[in-house]
């Protein structure tokens, strides 16, 4: 298909406090049906969406962090996380959930979908996108 566009979903909000994070994920899942080149970016408080060990039993909301792990099934294989945003929040890559996808071009080997990149590299990811959807 020649008219594949690069879509970048830019996530800058923490989960649960507002509806943005969950809405973004739902749009990604629905949008995945259109077979575009989809990437997710996690910048600023958006990095909090991917923390391990979320347990929402006490606040009566749905824990949607496991759903990120289904993104590979929806052919979403690139989750870019900004290193500086993590560091500013006292977090590191080890604090994040594991998300994998199966690489069709490499005998369906499981590969990590989360890529921690620098702010400068994130700027390049943004500049490279045809469409940026902000949440």
């Amino acid at each position: 298909m020649s008219d594949v566009k690069k879509f970048l979903y830019l996530n800058r909000r923490a989960p649960y406090g507002t509806i943005y994070a969950l809405e973004s994920l739902e749009v990604v899942l629905i949008g995945a049906a259109f077979e575009q080149d989809v990437s997710l970016a996690f910048v600023d408080d958006g990095v909090f969406q991917l923390t391990k060990g979320q347990n929402t039993d006490g606040i009566g909301m749905k824990n949607f962090s496991p759903t990120f792990r289904a993104l590979g099934d929806y052919d979403v294989q690139k989750l870019f996380v900004e290193r500086e945003s993590l560091e500013e929040r006292g977090l590191s890559e080890d604090d994040l959930i594991e998300v994998v996808y199966e690489d069709e071009d490499d005998d369906w080997e499981e590969k990590p979908a989360i890529r921690v990149i620098s702010r400068a590299e994130m700027a390049d990811v943004m500049a490279d996108a045809d469409v940026v959807l902000s949440f």
Partner: peptide, 14 residues
């Protein structure tokens, strides 16, 4: 508020 901390995956040790 501890339930909000747990929801966000943050260990009280942090």
């Amino acid at each position: 508020l501890s339930p909000d901390l747990a929801a966000r995956g943050l260990d009280p040790k942090r």
